[in-house]
């Protein structure tokens, strides 16, 4: 492979990436508001909007972030730490603003041997009462969401 071929490949790949990115809508700019760290969702708790039950395979749940943990109803996105525990299979979670089609992205990937695993994320919020959707691909898993700030 000569130098020119490599350059062309790189350009080709970049063009493909840019094409994919440009398909996503953009809003903003927003400013960040740091809040006292706060657990907003814990599916290990008794069944409620932001509590249990545990996620099953292929299930989606919608949680209420705005109005909790100091996040105002005007917030457009939230800074989260996503933690999973008690996974029965390797799987992934997708987080996205509720109401829209589930995007083909993953927020955290894990295996059943992980006692608990976390990843940071910034996720948009819809204006619905339950403004954040979470999808679990396989097996059962508990999901915990801790808020550290929001954007608006």
């Amino acid at each position: 492979m000569n130098k020119h071929t490599v350059s062309r490949l790189v350009l080709f790949t970049l063009a493909g990436l840019l094409g994919a990115v440009s398909a996503a809508a953009q809003t903003g700019p927003y400013q960040f508001f740091a809040v006292a760290p706060c657990r907003v969702v814990d599916t290990r708790n008794p069944n409620s909007t932001n509590g249990g039950p545990i996620f099953n395979a292929g299930t989606q749940r919608d949680f209420a972030i705005r109005g909790n943990c100091g996040v105002p109803t005007s917030a457009k996105a939230v800074s989260l730490n996503v933690t999973i525990t008690g996974a029965t299979q390797g799987s992934f979670l997708t987080l996205w603003p509720s109401g829209g089609a589930r995007p083909v992205v993953s927020t955290i990937n894990f295996t059943f041997s992980d006692p608990a695993l976390a990843n940071g994320a910034i996720v948009g919020l819809s204006t619905s009462a339950s403004d954040l959707s979470v999808y679990n691909s396989s097996g059962n898993v508990h999901v915990i969401l801790d808020v550290t700030g929001y954007f608006q």
Partner: peptide, 10 residues
């Protein structure tokens, strides 16, 4: 200390 976590480890 708030009841939150930032990273879990094994």
């Amino acid at each position: 200390l708030p009841v939150v976590s930032t990273i879990n480890y094994t």
